[in-house]
C-alpha cells in the first residue's frame, strides 16, 4: 500500500502556512466571525438550471468562503487590542457563543479583544511565535513541542478536571472493529499534525502495538478539526478517526445525529487539556489580567453560561507537568 501521508504533504502544508503567515495582518479579525457566518448562510449550494449571472455570483461566493477574503484589519483602537488565537480545540463553529465570550472578555478586561481563528495549530503557533497574537488556545502537543517558546496561562477544566482523552471512532455501521490495529489498510482521518488526541495519540498506540504508523493505513487525511474528523467518519469518507473526547462529547449534545453516525471504539489514557498559552515577552499586566479573568469566569453568571456553551467548568492555573505523558510520547517518536 502506498502511504499518502508522506513528507511532501506535511512540508507543503508548512510551506503554505508560512506564506500565509506573512499576510496575517490582512486576514480575519475575530470580530469578523459573524460576518463569515452571514456569508455562510447565503451560500445555499446546489444550483438551478439558471443564468450565468447567478452562477458567477455563486462562484464568487464560493471563493469568498474558501479563501476568506475578509475585511482588512481596522487597525488598533486607541488601546491596543488583546489578540487571542483560537483553534480547533473545541467545536469552533459556535460563532454566536464565541462572540459573546469575546464581548465578555472585553468587558472584564476593559480593553478590546480580538479572536484570531486558525484552522491548524501550526498556523496559530506561527502567529504566536511571530507575536502577531498575544495568547492562543492550542493543543498540548505544540505546547510541549515548542516548550519554552510560550508561557502557560490557564488550563480549562472539563468535567471538573484538566484532562481529556482521545476517542477512536469508526462509522456506526462498523460493528466489528474493537481496536485501532484492526483498521489496517483503511482510510483514517487525523485532525491536525499538531494535535495530540487527533494525531499523536493514535499513532503512538500503533507504534506501541508494533506497527509503523506511516505505513499502517492505506491513506490518511487531515481534516484540520476534530469536528470534521467526526464528519469524515460519519460520512464514510474515512473508516476510522481519532478525536478529542471533549469535542465528541460536546457534539453528542449539540449535534447528536452526527455523533450517532459514529461509534467510539476505544478511549485513550487521560491527557492534560489543551491549554491557553501566552507568547513570550507578553506584558505581565495583560498576562495577569487575562489569567485572572479566566480563572474567575465561573464566578459570575455570564461566565458560567459561556462556559456551559463551551462545555467547560472553569479554568485553573495548571502545571506543565500535566503534559509529561505527551512529552514522553513525542520523545518516543523522535527516538526512532
Amino acid at each position: 500500500m502506498k502511504n499518502h501521508e508522506n513528507s511532501r504533504t506535511e512540508s507543503a502544508r508548512w510551506a503554505w502556512n508560512g506564506a500565509v503567515g506573512t499576510e496575517n495582518g490582512c486576514r480575519a479579525r475575530s470580530a469578523g466571525l459573524p460576518w463569515r457566518n452571514k456569508t455562510g448562510k447565503k451560500l445555499i449550494w446546489g444550483y438551478e438550471l439558471v443564468t450565468a449571472t447567478r452562477m458567477k455570483t455563486w462562484i464568487a461566493a464560493v471563493l469568498v468562503l474558501l479563501f476568506g477574503a475578509l475585511a482588512p484589519d481596522a487597525g488598533a483602537a486607541h488601546q491596543a487590542p488583546v489578540r487571542i488565537g483560537l483553534t480547533a480545540t473545541f467545536p469552533n463553529d459556535q460563532y454566536r457563543a464565541l462572540e459573546e465570550w469575546r464581548r465578555y472578555l472585553e468587558r472584564r478586561l476593559e480593553r478590546p479583544v480580538e479572536f484570531v481563528r486558525r484552522d491548524s495549530y501550526a498556523e496559530a503557533m506561527d502567529l504566536l511565535r511571530l507575536q502577531k497574537i498575544d495568547f492562543a488556545w492550542v493543543c498540548e502537543y505544540p505546547f510541549v513541542f515548542f516548550k519554552g517558546q510560550m508561557k502557560l496561562l490557564a488550563i480549562p477544566l472539563y468535567r471538573g478536571r484538566p484532562y481529556y482523552q482521545s476517542y477512536l471512532i469508526v462509522p456506526a455501521g462498523d460493528r466489528s472493529t474493537r481496536s485501532i490495529t484492526q483498521l489496517e489498510g483503511t482510510v483514517f482521518a487525523y485532525a491536525d499534525p499538531y494535535s495530540n488526541t487527533g494525531y499523536l495519540s493514535p499513532r503512538f498506540d500503533l507504534q506501541q502495538a508494533g506497527y509503523d504508523p506511516q505505513q499502517f493505513f492505506r491513506k490518511t487525511i487531515f481534516t484540520w478539526s476534530h469536528r470534521k474528523t467526526v464528519e469524515a467518519v460519519a460520512s464514510g469518507l474515512a473508516q476510522g478517526g481519532a478525536v478529542s473526547s471533549h469535542v465528541w462529547e460536546t457534539l453528542s449534545t449539540v449535534k447528536p445525529e452526527l455523533t450517532a453516525a459514529t461509534r467510539v471504539v476505544t478511549t485513550s489514557a487521560e491527557f492534560g487539556f489543551p491549554p491557553f498559552v501566552a507568547r513570550t515577552g507578553i506584558g505581565a499586566a495583560v498576562f495577569d489580567d487575562l489569567q485572572r479573568v479566566l480563572l474567575t469566569m465561573s464566578e459570575d453568571e455570564d461566565g458560567r453560561r459561556l462556559l456551559r456553551h463551551l462545555n467547560l467548568d472553569g479554568f485553573m492555573r495548571g502545571d506543565p507537568a500535566l503534559y509529561d505523558r505527551v512529552d514522553s510520547m513525542i520523545r518516543s517518536f523522535s527516538a526512532q
Binding site: H4, R8, T9, A12, R13, W16, L43, I44, W45, G46, Y47, E48, L49, V62, L66, A189, K219, I221, F222, T223, W224, K228, A232, S235, L237
Partner: peptide, 26 residues
C-alpha cells in the same frame, strides 16, 4: 495539489447540501 482530501470533500460536497424543499436540481 496539496493532497487535501478533506478540503476537496468539503468543496465537492457543498452543492449537495441545499436545504430541503429547494427546487433546484442537485
Amino acid at each position: 495539489l496539496n493532497d487535501e482530501v478533506w478540503r476537496a470533500f468539503e468543496i465537492i460536497r457543498a452543492p449537495l447540501s441545499a436545504t430541503p424543499g429547494d427546487s433546484t436540481v442537485q
